[in-house]
Amino acid sequence: MGVHRSKLEVAISPCPNDVFIFSGILLQKVKSSIDFEVHFYDIEELNRFAIKGSYPVIKASFAILTELSKTYQVLDTGSALGFGTGPIVVAKSLPYPQRPKVGLPGEHTTANLLFKAFFPEEYDEVFLPFYQIIPKLLEGKIDLGVLIHEGRFVYEGYGLKLVYDLGALWEKIHKLPLPLGGIFVKKDLPSEFKQEILNSIKASLRFAKENWCEVLPLLKKHAQELDEETIKKHVETFVNDYTESLGQEGVLAIKTLAQYQGLKEDELKDLFWGTDNGCP
Rank of each mutant, 00 (worst) to 15 (best):
H4C: 12
H4Q: 14
R5T: 11
E9G: 03
C15I: 14
P16L: 08
D18L: 03
V19R: 01
I25T: 01
S33A: 13
I34L: 11
D35H: 13
V38W: 04
F40N: 05
E44D: 07
E44N: 02
E45L: 05
R48A: 11
R48T: 07
I51M: 13
I51P: 04
I51E: 14
K52M: 03
F62N: 04
A63Y: 05
L65K: 07
L65R: 06
T66G: 14
E67M: 09
L68D: 08
S69R: 15
K70I: 07
K70M: 13
Y72S: 03
V74I: 12
S79Y: 02
S79K: 00
A80L: 11
F83Q: 00
G84L: 02
G84S: 03
V89W: 08
V90F: 14
A91Y: 08
K92L: 10
K92N: 03
K92H: 11
L94C: 10
Y96M: 07
Q98N: 13
R99Q: 10
P100L: 02
P100S: 00
P105K: 08
E107M: 04
T109I: 07
A111Y: 09
A111E: 06
N112Y: 11
L114V: 01
A117E: 08
F118Y: 08
F119M: 00
F119N: 07
E121D: 10
E121K: 12
Y123H: 07
D124Q: 10
E125P: 10
V126C: 11
Q132H: 10
K136A: 15
G140R: 15
K141V: 14
V146S: 00
I148W: 11
I148V: 15
H149D: 12
G151L: 04
R152G: 07
V154K: 12
Y155C: 08
E156S: 14
E156D: 15
E156R: 15
G157W: 05
Y164H: 02
L166M: 05
G167F: 05
G167C: 03
W170D: 01
K172H: 12
I173R: 15
I173G: 02
L178V: 10
L178N: 02
P179W: 08
P179E: 05
I183C: 01
F184K: 09
V185R: 01
K187R: 03
L189R: 04
E192P: 00
E192G: 13
F193M: 05
I197P: 04
S200F: 03
I201H: 04
K202S: 13
S204W: 02
F207V: 06
E214D: 03
L216V: 08
P217E: 14
P217V: 14
L219H: 08
K220W: 02
H222R: 11
E225A: 12
D227S: 12
T230M: 12
K232L: 12
K232W: 05
K232H: 09
H234E: 03
H234L: 00
H234P: 03
T237G: 06
T237K: 05
S245T: 13
L246V: 02
G247T: 04
Q248W: 02
V251C: 09
I254Y: 00
T256R: 01
A258L: 07
Q259K: 15
Y260P: 00
G262V: 06
G262M: 03
L263R: 15
K264C: 08
K264M: 10
E265S: 10
D266H: 12
W273D: 04
G274K: 00
N277S: 14
P280D: 10
